[in-house]
Simulated scan of single mutants.
Amino acid sequence: MSTPLSELPIRRLTKDDLVSCSNLSEDRGWPREEHKWGLLLTAGTGYGIDDPAGKGLVTACVVTPYGSGLAAIGMMLVAERFSRQGIGRRLMKHVLEEAGDTPLTLHATPYGQPLYKELGFADIGRAEMVRGCLRAPEADTSTTVTTRPATAEDLQAVLRLDAEAFGLDRTHMITRLPAFADHFRVAEEDGVLTGYAAAWPNMETHVVGPLIARDTETAKALISSLSAETDRPLRTDIDVRHEELIAWVKEHGLETIAFNAVMTHGIPDLPGDWTRRFAPLSVAVG
């Protein structure tokens, strides 16, 4: 007799589950994203339920902690053959129990949003996913934003800048960027860093994230400089409040492909300074 779904054990995932997690992504019609899964399973805590028939994972998600101030939930997936049977809700309830008093955040697709609302998450914003090849902007003599490749000597300044904009210490994520990303650039003025951005490989695209900048002109300069270093299309998820930047990337070749709701649990809004936080490292980790 088969074990009821409600009794299947929930276990911690490790990097040894990389292929199984990628298979689960593929099962739901998502890209395999093995590079991203590798980061998530080493920097965060993965949870999953195994198929008792030995056919991989029934469901999985990853929680990326930022101390006791916040944790991000990402890659919440349920195998197609087990969809609409309550297994995703069970895993999410387990994650909420494990989190205790730690506030949570996630980016929700329209499909997943109703479940998260049932579990007490609230909408606090939206992110617009854009994709395409950036057409080189015409030279703008009114701005003099300087960007360059990041060096090891920039790391402490990048961490300080990131903590101000993100509102919490995410050293364990940012210090992984030089190895995780193909391109990592900073903007500076008079020797002071005013922004930074990375572009990391995801299937046929380069994802721009994080994108932290003093202002919109700095964000534009960072995106332009990253685009100049790759032949791949760019993809990024921009906070919809950054209307000027969204309009600019669309004017230069990127197109909207999706909207995700930004949601929180146990906290009315995200910490930090959203005016300098243009795009997350990934929607899976904030």
Rank of each mutant, 00 (worst) to 15 (best):
I246L: 15
V158D: 01
G29S: 14
D123F: 02
S224M: 09
V207N: 10
E153Q: 00
P233T: 09
L134E: 12
D239M: 10
T216R: 13
W274G: 03
Y116H: 07
R84F: 14
K55F: 07
G112A: 05
A150D: 08
G100F: 11
L177V: 15
G112N: 04
G167A: 14
F180K: 09
A72F: 08
I49D: 10
V62H: 09
A136K: 15
M76P: 02
I223W: 12
T59M: 08
L234W: 12
D162F: 04
A228P: 08
P149F: 01
Y116Q: 08
E138F: 03
P65H: 05
E243L: 04
G100H: 07
A165C: 14
Y47L: 14
T64M: 02
D51H: 13
M263L: 13
A53W: 03
R148T: 11
H242C: 04
A122E: 15
T3H: 07
C133Q: 15
I223E: 12
G125W: 00
E189I: 08
D162G: 05
S142A: 08
C21L: 13
T141Y: 12
G38E: 04
G132E: 03
I73C: 14
G272S: 11
A198Y: 04
S282G: 02
E7Y: 06
A181R: 02
R241H: 13
L222A: 12
L119K: 06
T102F: 11
I49F: 12
V186L: 04
V58R: 08
N23H: 09
G56V: 01
M173W: 13
E138A: 08
A71N: 05
R185Q: 07
L13Y: 11
N260D: 05
I124M: 01
T275A: 05
T64S: 05
T218W: 03
K36Y: 09
P31A: 09
A279V: 02
I212A: 03
I49A: 13
G54C: 09
M173E: 10
G44A: 01
T3W: 07
